[in-house]
Design a protein around this nucleic acid. Structure first.
Lengths: 211, 211
DNA sequence: CGCCGAATATGAACATTGTTCATATTCGGC
DNA sequence: GCCGAATATGAACAATGTTCATATTCGGCG
């Protein structure tokens, strides 16, 4: 009596282990800290020997890179959607920033992983490198206001795009590390924070700020 | 025959082990990656048993926090110096940004440690918390342009100060992760990057940028 | 001086981690 | 039905943070 093809298998050859590892790891990231994500933990959760993972990933870093790459794609999809919906460049960038911060707030451990040292050092891998340039490319595209990305001009616009992204990433990390409140300052909503960031980005820190 | 008080001691009671642990760990951070800094490694380097460390620090995280706190103080000193030397708020902020990026470039592993998860989660400790708020407070003070920090008004200015700091921190991390060059874009000097960041910060991303 | 408690250092343990390797099992094509 | 390739196992290894009983040294008090 053998189980059907799609049913859960016991013992050897349990089906598409690669996908199950990725999905289990993603689930772990949703519920726990990034530090809780270990190779052995994922194996335990899936119910498989630790060494089995090495048949599908070269090592732990590659597993993490694969998860991060998927995160990049999720983020890209969010940004693409906003980018293709909103015509006005400024309104678009505002929406992009909101989406960006909300993504980080919704997936804190995943976001941390995406910009962790071990994953970033893997950006030579095409899957990670290309996907990782995404949020960056979007801000360059905003610069052109045209929806087209011209690498030949990126040398000029690069630092400005970098600044836009730095602003968002820095604020996101502050958010996740719980530093959005300092002293007795009340907490700031994500959307309000995004608006302030874009006020600074678009018009400078001096304009519009209360004295 | 006993060694003099200041000479190197062998065996038990080797002198001020706490300081030697900190200094050895700092030296390690100057020459190696952050991931190379382990409790046992520091103990080995000092020539002491791993468990000896627990007589001077509660655990590894506290050792790391102490090192990070010292880093905060170094950074604060740099910023204070610029802050008290340059009168014009804008010129001062430009200089602060340059100092900040250079500090990160000079001490990459230490900078990473200072803003790592494990250290930031220790900001409840007064030594870490107060020192860590420094770079932040400086940007708030810039807001006032007066050199005085008034916590009662920080609720208003907080998001703007956060934006300024996010810009610097995000760019610093990009620098350290080697993402300052993307594709065939030539590398950008640290000072030039700082200037662009402050152009964006002060006048907005639209002003002064080449089209 | 001598002694005793406190401070400090040691070394052996333990649990956990990533990784490797020989072995065992299952799948798929001939 | 068989054989090689793919895959899973379990035992091992080195390294990590941490704890604990033990050993040593320091400092003060008699």
């Amino acid at each position: 009596m053998t189980a059907s093809k799609s049913a859960v298998q016991y013992g050897y050859h349990k089906g598409n282990l690669r996908d199950r590892l990725l999905k289990t790891a993603q689930k772990l990231l949703q519920n726990e800290e990034l530090s809780a994500l270990s190779l052995r933990r994922v194996a335990r959760e899936v119910g498989v020997a630790p060494s089995a993972i090495y048949n599908h990933f070269k090592n732990l870093d590659e597993l993490l890179a694969a998860i991060a790459a998927d995160g990049y794609r999720q983020l890209e999809a969010l940004e693409r959607a906003a980018y293709e919906t909103i015509a006005d460049p400024e309104a678009c960038l505002r929406q992009l920033t909101r989406e960006y911060l909300h993504f980080a707030a919704r997936n804190p451990s995943l976001y941390r992983l995406m910009f962790s040292r071990s994953v970033l050092s893997y950006r030579a891998l095409p899957e990670v490198g290309e996907a990782g340039d995404t949020s960056f490319r979007v801000s360059v595209e905003w610069w052109y206001g045209s929806g087209s990305y011209d690498p030949s001009k990126s040398a000029i616009h690069y630092p400005y795009a970098l600044a836009v992204w730095s602003l968002c990433h820095g604020a996101a990390m502050q958010m996740l590390d719980g530093m959005v409140t300092v002293g007795d300052t009340p907490e700031i909503g994500v959307d309000a924070l995004a608006d302030v960031l874009m006020d600074v980005c678009l018009r400078g820190a001096l304009a519009g700020a209360p004295k």
